[in-house]
Design a protein around this nucleic acid. Structure first.
Length: 263
DNA sequence: AACTGTCTCAACCGCGTTAGC
DNA sequence: TGCTAACGCGGTTGAGACAGT
């Protein structure tokens, strides 16, 4: 019997050493080709895992800590427009990740569901369409809404039912759905108004957002990272030389087998 | 102090989309 | 043009922290 001695792909929490290695190699090769980075870095991780770790934790532009009230409000507003399009929402919140927003939303919805359960009588079970945000078994009937509103249906009824902070908008939207989804405009909270509200929110955050959206390229980093708290790991590894090394040069200079030793 | 329930967040998984060949 | 690998997104899970009893 042949025993395959295969290096197992590591899972679970990342160690500081792994973080360091990843930061180094992302510095070398950029935020792409994650499988390649996973291989050459010597991390026994999948490319997916590396990417996720980078995006959700190591990215130099990330904010830490709880969402501010403005951010919370923005999340609620944008979710009412786009539904569970977390990455899209995250793009409007500089320094926040889709994962973070998703987690926040879950917590938020759970709280709302609990409050609702407490406040409602035991007999009124029919009104509790969503006891938990993660319960996606209950899918809403398909409705013919314009795109912005259609996107909101992806989560089932739950988020609409339990929507709290900007209740008016939620109620309006729910009413629209209950009416079959036709009269999206003109039920007291027209799309114009919604967009105005978003626009005004965006104005408040506009400077940050502009920077954030530029952050997907290298230039964005340099400007953005200087104004936001950056990872200590990043400080450790992010030197000019690292960024200036061309990938082809690296190939010439560092045989893959020993790369991670040098980094 | 010990136990239990709840919350938060990091990470994984599956699937759809995109890019390269 | 079809195939394949890589990427990106949304859903879900699980471990650790924290609060309440």
């Amino acid at each position: 019997m042949v025993i395959m001695v295969q290096e197992e792909v590591r899972k679970g929490p990342w160690t500081e050493q792994e973080d360091l290695q990843l930061v180094c190699f992302v510095g070398l090769f950029g935020e792409r080709r994650w499988d390649f980075i996973a291989k050459v870095s010597g991390l026994n991780r999948t490319g997916k895992s590396c990417r996720l770790r980078w995006i959700n934790y190591l990215h130099p532009g990330l904010k830490r800590g709880r969402l501010t009230p403005q951010e919370e409000r923005l999340v609620l507003e944008l979710h009412s427009l786009w539904g569970n399009r977390w990455s899209r929402i995250a793009r409007k919140l500089p320094g926040r990740t889709d994962n973070e927003i998703k987690n926040y939303w879950r917590t938020h919805m759970r709280k709302k569901a609990q409050e609702r359960r407490r406040s409602s009588s035991p007999s009124s079970s029919s009104s509790q369409l969503c006891s938990s945000p993660s319960t996606n078994n209950i899918k809403p009937p398909p409705v013919s809404l314009p795109e912005a509103a259609q996107n909101t249906t992806g989560d089932g009824e739950g988020w609409l039912q339990d929507y709290g902070a900007s209740g008016d908008l939620a109620v309006q939207t729910r009413e629209m759905k209950e009416e079959g989804g036709h009269a999206l405009i003109g039920i007291g909270y027209p799309m114009d108004q919604i967009w105005k509200e978003i626009a005004s929110l965006e104005e408040v955050n506009s400077s940050e957002i502009v920077v954030s959206e530029g952050c997907s390229n290298d230039q964005g980093y340099s400007s953005y990272c200087s104004s936001v708290v950056t990872s200590p790991l990043w400080d450790y590894c992010c030197s000019d030389t690292l960024w200036k090394i061309d990938e082809e040069d690296v190939k010439m200079l560092l045989p893959a087998s020993g790369m991670h030793d040098k980094c």
